[in-house]
Design a protein around this nucleic acid. Structure first.
Length: 669
DNA sequence: GTAGGGTTAG
């Protein structure tokens, strides 16, 4: 009874003051209002306010809604007549901004409070999402003279969202009467805490459900990875034929859920089940119809699987589009790199927001057009952290390390705090520059800013080992226990291999095989390690084990290593055999390995073959000429040496200092 | 659209 009555009051309180009652309908309204006044003195006060106060209250709430809190406070202070709603609105303003001290001050100052005042304060404390504040909320809840559904439900959802389901359930069981919102709060709580089974049990047990119950369950199930369960629930409880309930939320959620998993056909099936009404704006009371979110979600599904044609088809068919629709479409083009279409759409789009600008920037960065990326970056009106991260990552990926560093300093100067994405890029910059000093600084910044996750730790390992600080790399690797992925192992083994610690690389590789499945990259490092210390048989064994035991097809890098291994051991004919029989066109690493081996074993004939192949692949490189020249000089074949020098001069190639094939061929990643 | 609770795409 109380529940029904309070619902009536809620409805009526939305009605404006009625100056006269010419119609029967209005008279009924008035009489019901009168009834309510009798039971709820606070409502009499609310409704007996003068039109002036009503207007000013409205103004305050409007100011708060548009984020102009201080203006609202000025207006509040200037009012000489205030109602409870005036106070409550102002308190609400502070509660929204989580300024609980100010809210609390007003709450204490106000001459009379009603249930809403208390509820506002409770919800403020709850939303702070800090453990001790929830207790402040509970204190108020216990103190308040009377409670309604909102009081109970606020408190329940507060506990549920803080993972304290025991307390939430205690209140749920204690409350005199429960409504749909109480049940929804409990179900959401279970889902937040990963208790799928109880969430479903409560959902089935609740006496009455609404579309929010279904939406909450569906989205929670998807967040718990239970996509198929969610689909079954929707099938069972989402009665399309009724058409009264606003099912489109639940449908949209599931469409997006399928999209995340790339199950685009199932998403489309759902999308097609939602009535479209082909552009009719007024389809009566039927709320179950496609809305802009349905279209956007379906588009996202197509974008996700790279089906840009279908996405565009939907985009073109949409009767109205919002910023989200445009961004999804632009992002779709960005993801398949086709940038012309993306920038055309961007130019056509009515109100590009920061998200749109960021998409365009990272798109141009992706295709290596740093100039355009930077252009857009400088022109955009509001740069956020993602904008900075996109442009810095773009510079890093395109190996403009100095540019990346410059942007990073500027970003800090302009008052943006780097996050893990920023620092990951700057870490890669340190690796690219082989700048241990910078790398250490970034490492410190990482430690200060957040707890490093697996990808960041992997970048740290790579940075330290690439900079030669192998002990520090190993330290990070050990600290990661037990959270390592295959990249961590590859980074560490690669670090050992490239610095000649073959024994350590092989030992770690044996350990790796007992924990995770190696990848082709692991084998590049292992072969590399074998090459370094001349482990010929071990190298061959690993090469065959990769193919036969791990089913990994050898790539040109593996062949380059193998050529290096056998060639250095003096088996130059076998090395040449390998090159002639490998299933790829040999690249510069392969010929470089052979040339290096020829130099070691003074095989000038074969060296000539390798050098010629290299010159064909890289006509502007001086390395093969220099190596060949040195070989002839060593053998005192001065005529041949002179020929090489002349030929090099004819091609106007200058000797690059500090460059040698023997070194570079050992530096595979 | 004068104040408070549960749900929806990035």
């Amino acid at each position: 009874m109380t529940a029904m009555f309070s619902r009536v009051v809620m409805k009526l309180s939305k009605l404006p003051l009625i100056p006269c009652m010419p119609t029967l309908k209005n008279r009924l309204k008035h009489e019901s209002l009168f009834l309510c006044y009798c039971g709820f003195p606070s409502l009499i006060r609310s409704f007996s306010q003068t039109p002036k106060v009503y207007q000013l209250n409205k103004k305050i709430s409007h100011l708060i809604r548009s984020g102009r809190l201080s203006e609202a406070r000025d207006l509040f202070d200037s009012m000489n007549e205030r109602t409870i709603i005036t106070w409550n609105s102002m308190i609400n303003g502070y509660v929204q901004r989580r300024e609980m001290a100010k809210a609390c001050q007003l709450f204490n100052e106000m001459p009379k409070r009603d249930i809403v005042s208390w509820n506002l304060m409770i919800s403020g404390y709850i939303s702070c999402h800090v453990g001790r504040y929830i207790e402040e909320g509970k204190k108020l809840f216990d103190q308040m003279p009377e409670r309604d559904f909102v009081s109970w439900n606020t408190m329940i959802s507060g506990y549920a969202k803080n993972g304290r389901m025991d307390e939430a359930l205690k209140l749920f069981n204690k409350m005199p009467e429960r409504n749909i919102v109480s049940w929804n709060a409990i179900i959401t709580g279970f889902l937040l805490n990963g208790n799928v089974a109880l969430a479903i049990e409560f959902f089935k047990k609740m006496p009455k459900r609404d579309s929010a119950s279904l939406s909450a369950l569906i989205s929670g199930l998807i967040q718990n990875g239970e996509l198929d369960v969610a689909a079954r629930i929707l099938h069972e409880y989402g009665n399309i034929d009724e058409g009264k309930e606003d099912l489109v939320h639940a449908y949209n959620t599931l469409i997006a859920g399928y999209g995340q998993k790339g199950r685009v056909e199932e998403a489309r099936h759902l999308f097609d089940q939602i009535p479209n009404y082909k552009g009719q704006t007024d389809v009566g009371k039927n709320k179950f119809k496609r809305n802009i979110v349905s279209w956007n979600s379906m588009m996202m599904c197509y974008v996700k699987v790279g089906d840009i044609v279908s996405a565009r088809d939907l985009f073109d068919k949409m009767i109205e589009r919002d910023t989200f629709s445009w961004n999804t479409m632009i992002n779709g083009y960005v993801q398949i790199s086709a940038m012309e279409e993306a920038s055309t759409l961007f130019a056509k789009m009515p109100n590009p927001n920061t998200f749109s600008w960021n998409s365009i920037i990272s798109g141009f960065a992706q295709i290596g057009d740093l100039k355009l990326a930077k252009d857009f970056f400088e022109r955009m009106p509001h740069k956020n952290l993602i904008s900075w991260n996109s442009i810095i990552a773009g510079y890093e990926k395109n190996e403009d390390y100095k540019g990346a560093i410059k942007l990073f300093s500027r970003m800090k100067l302009e008052g943006h705090r780097p996050d893990r994405h920023t620092l990951s890029s700057v870490l890669s910059v340190s690796t690219g520059l082989v700048d241990l000093y910078l790398g250490r600084q970034v490492h410190q910044l990482v430690t200060k800013t957040f707890i490093p996750d697996v990808p960041i730790n992997n970048s740290l390992i790579t940075m330290y080992s690439r900079c030669g600080a192998i002990i520090e790399a190993r330290y990070i690797f050990n600290e990661m226990e037990p959270k390592k992925d295959v990249i961590s192992w590859n980074a560490m083994i690669g670090g050992y291999a490239s610095h000649g610690f073959a024994a350590e690389a092989l030992e770690l590789f044996e350990l790796m095989k007992s924990k995770v499945h190696p990848t082709y990259i692991s084998f590049i490092s292992v072969l590399n390690a074998c090459a370094h210390v001349g482990l010929v048989e071990e190298g061959k064994r690993q090469f065959h084990s990769m193919i036969n035991e791990y089913g990994i097809m050898p790539r040109v890098e593996h062949f380059a290593s193998l050529v290096d291994i056998v060639g250095r051991h003096g088996q130059l004919e076998e090395a040449l055999d390998l090159i002639n029989n490998m299933p790829f066109e040999p690249d510069k690493a392969v010929w470089g390995a052979l040339l290096g081996a020829c130099r070691v074993h003074n095989n000038v004939e074969l060296a000539q073959v390798a050098a010629e192949a290299l010159i064909k692949l890289e006509p502007e490189s001086s390395a093969p000429f220099v190596l060949l020249y040195n070989m002839y000089a060593d053998l005192a074949q001065w005529d041949d040496a002179e020929k090489v020098r002349v030929s090099m001069e004819r091609r106007s190639i200058k000797k690059q200092t500090g460059y040698s094939w023997v070194d570079s061929s050992n530096c595979h990643r």
